[in-house]
Simulated assay, not measured.
Amino acid sequence: MSTASPDALPPVWFSKNISPTLQRIRQVKRSGRYRVLASHTSPDAGYLGAADHGFVEPPMPSAAAYLDYVLQTVQKHNIAALVAGRYAAHLAQHRAEIGAAGCHLIVPSTDPASFERCEDKAHFYQTFAEHIPMPETRPVQNWPQMLAAARELEAKYGSACIKPACGIFGIGFRILTEGDDLKYFLSGNPLRLSYPAAELLFKDQELPVMLVMETLPGFEYSIDVLARGGELLTCVIRRKLVGLGNLQTAVEHPQMREWTALLCRELQMDGLFNAQFREDKHGQPKLLEVNARASGGLPISAALSGLDLGLLEVDSHFGVPLGDLTFAAGRRVTESQEVIALPAKVL
């Protein structure tokens, strides 16, 4: 750990992002190698209090306005590296301008197009289906198409499911069933939707592109990945288990690691990102999606591997030797809630 005064350390700025930012900030600050700044559009964001300096980002009318704000903030605080969440794809298009201001831009990919490729799952499936096993999928935009595709896949695989082609956090995902809406509602199961209820919801509606897919009943895997310049540096393959709470274990899976390395190369990944797989009824893992961002499960991967992935990401951009990135699989962990004190005042 460095003994330098915090003011003498290179400032690293974490802009508005999702929940795992708290642990990333803690890891980077604990190293003693950096001074950490953090911002969010809300003063109530839990991770602001973990930084050396927290501040509120102003409302922005556009991505272009946000770029101007970033450049001004980089100059004002002499930022050495920006770990960007908000408008990450747009900032990636302007990497040269940010670099000219003396700041490393840390986002999941060096290729701005990769953000859109990951966001549009219909296009993503078409691109990678020849290289990585995918669930059989039909893009649809109205109820008759959805019903026909669902019945076709149900006849072939036993069950069909739907989700928006663009979206995060599994929002809009439902497994289609013949009935029992009340039973699922009363039992707290939000993931089932009957065909009659789906018809009421979707019939005569102009829909965004939706995906109808085979339902995958096997183990789910979430892979937290650290890449640099399109190269896989390390990854934690988490298998989600049935048990009390969010029980997970780290596993070794050479084929899944090989597919992950392919994704790093093809998408020119350059930081932390996440890939989701699930097994079909035969135990074959199939790729569900790639998230061009650090996942909410990043703290679980850190606990399973012992690797400070957030710190490693920043170190990789400063040329700090990363050391041994291997770890033994097999550890099991679960989650518990944490209460976080907010700073008394955030400017």
Rank of each mutant, 00 (worst) to 15 (best):
M1V: 13
S5F: 10
D7F: 04
D7Y: 02
A8Y: 04
L9H: 02
F14V: 09
T21G: 03
R24Q: 15
V28C: 12
K29G: 05
S31G: 10
G32W: 06
G32M: 08
R33C: 03
S42D: 13
G46P: 07
A51Y: 04
D52P: 10
D52Y: 11
F55M: 13
E57R: 03
P61L: 03
P61Y: 09
S62W: 06
A64E: 15
A65Q: 02
A88Y: 14
A88R: 13
A89R: 09
A101S: 13
I106P: 08
S114A: 15
E119S: 14
F124R: 00
Q126E: 15
Q126N: 11
V140Q: 03
L147M: 07
A160L: 02
I162G: 02
P164R: 00
A165R: 04
C166D: 06
R174F: 00
I175T: 01
I175S: 00
I175A: 01
D180Y: 00
D181E: 01
L182V: 00
F202R: 00
K203L: 15
Q205C: 11
G229F: 08
E231H: 14
R239H: 08
R239I: 01
Q255G: 06
W259E: 02
K286T: 00
A292F: 07
R293C: 10
L298T: 05
A303C: 05
A303F: 01
L304R: 01
G306Y: 10
H317L: 09
V320N: 01
R332M: 13
V333W: 10
A341H: 14
